[in-house]
Amino acid sequence: MDDPNAVNSLIETPGTSATEGHVRWNPILSLWNGGMLAAAVILGPSTISAGALCVFVATTGSVLLLGHSVGFHRRLIHRSFACPLWLERVLVWFGTIVGMSGPHGIIRTHDLRDWAQRQPACHPYLSHRSPILKDAWWQLHCRLELAHPPRFDLGRAGQDRFYRFLEASWMAQQLPIAALLWWAGGWGFVIWGVCARVAISAHGHWFVGHLAHTRGPQTLLVDGAGVQAHDVPWAGFVTMGEAWHNNHHAFPGSARIGLHPGQSDLGFAFIRLLQRTGLAWDVQTPERFADRNTMLRAVENRA
C-alpha cells in the first residue's frame, strides 16, 4: 500500500518549481461556478419552499459526506482506508456529484497544492495567501500555470474506465440529478438541489480552505513546510470533519481528522460504520504513524 502521508500521484522532476507561474482566467470553470451562483441567487428566492430546503440540506450533506470527504479525500487521494472497488466507485461518483471536479481533476488539484505547501515556498495561488477577494477570484474562476510543473501518475485511478468517464462528464453528471428532482418537485427542487448545492459547495470549499491556510487555532507545525494549516472550528461539523485542517497537515494519511475532544468528524464516523459492517479495513489513524512525529512541533493553541 502506498504511504498515506505521501503525495502519491505527483512526480518531482529536475527543475520543478512551486513558485514560478501565472494565474490565467479559466472560462469554463468561471462560467460553471458563476452560473451556479447566479442561478441560486436570482432564482432561489422565488422557488424556495420547505421541500426545496429539505432537498438542499439532504443533497448537500450527503454528497459532501459520502463523496467529497470520504470518497474523494480520504479514499481516492490519501488512501487512508481500504474498501471494495464497487464501493469506492460509488463514493467517487458522489464526489463527482458535488460539482467541483471529476476524480482525476480533484487528485491533480489536491496533490499539486499538497506538494507545494510542503516546500519552503510556493506560489500564493497554492498557499491561499492573497487577499480574500483576489483569492476567491483565483480559486473559483482561474487556473495556475506553473512554469516548471511536476508530472502526475494517477496509477489505477488514472486507468479506471469509470473514473475516466466521470472525468469527461463531471458537469453533465448533474443532468440526471436535475431531471429526477424536477420530476419529484419541479424547478424549485432543481434550483435548490443542484444550483444552490453546487454553489455553496464550491464557494464554501474555497472559503474554508482560505481560512484554513491563513488564520485560526494551531496545535502542530510541520517542519520544513512553507505553509502551515489552521483549524476552522465553526466549520468542523458542516465540512464532515475536514475543517480540522491543522490536524490533517500533521497526519495527512489519517482517516480520522478530528483528533481532539469536541472535534466532530462525521467522515470518520462513516468510515467506522463501514468498518463495523466489513466494508472498510486498514483504517489509518495517527497511532500508526509514529515516525511522523519526528516532523512535528507542538505549539500553543492560538486564534
Rank of each mutant, 00 (worst) to 15 (best):
W183K: 11
F207N: 03
P176F: 07
K134R: 14
S127H: 02
A202Q: 02
A157M: 11
Q139C: 02
G155M: 10
L175R: 13
H205T: 15
V198T: 04
L146P: 00
L211G: 01
L180Y: 12
H205Y: 15
Q119N: 10
A147D: 14
W137P: 04
F162L: 14
E167F: 04
P176V: 11
S201H: 11
L144V: 06
H203M: 13
L175N: 12
W206M: 02
M171D: 10
A184E: 07
C195N: 07
Q173N: 15
S201Q: 12
I200T: 15
L133G: 10
Q173Y: 13
D153A: 12
G204H: 05
R151V: 13
G155D: 08
E167Y: 06
H123N: 03
L175H: 09
P149M: 08
Y125W: 11
L154F: 06
P124L: 01
Q174R: 11
S127M: 05
L146T: 04
C195S: 12
D153V: 09
P176N: 12
Q159F: 09
L180H: 07
A212H: 00
Q139Y: 03
Q159M: 13
S130M: 11
C122E: 01
G155H: 11
G204P: 03
D153S: 12
A168V: 08
I191V: 15
V198L: 08
L144H: 01
F152A: 05
Q117W: 04
H128P: 01
F162V: 11
V198P: 00
I132E: 00
R151A: 15
C122A: 12
W138V: 03
W170Q: 07
S127L: 03
L146V: 03
I132P: 00
I200S: 15
L180C: 13
H123D: 02
W192P: 00
M171N: 13
V208S: 01
Q117P: 03
P131L: 05
P131W: 06
G188F: 02
L166M: 13
W182V: 08
M171V: 15
Q174V: 08
P120T: 09
F162M: 11
G209R: 01
L126V: 03
A184L: 14
A172K: 15
G185L: 06
V190D: 02
A172F: 14
G158N: 06
G209A: 06
D135E: 08
T214M: 03
L144C: 04
Q139A: 08
H123R: 01
R143I: 12
P131C: 05
P131H: 04
R215D: 00
W206V: 00
A157G: 09
S169W: 15
W170A: 04
C122H: 02
H203D: 08
I177K: 08
H210Y: 09
Q159T: 11
H148G: 10
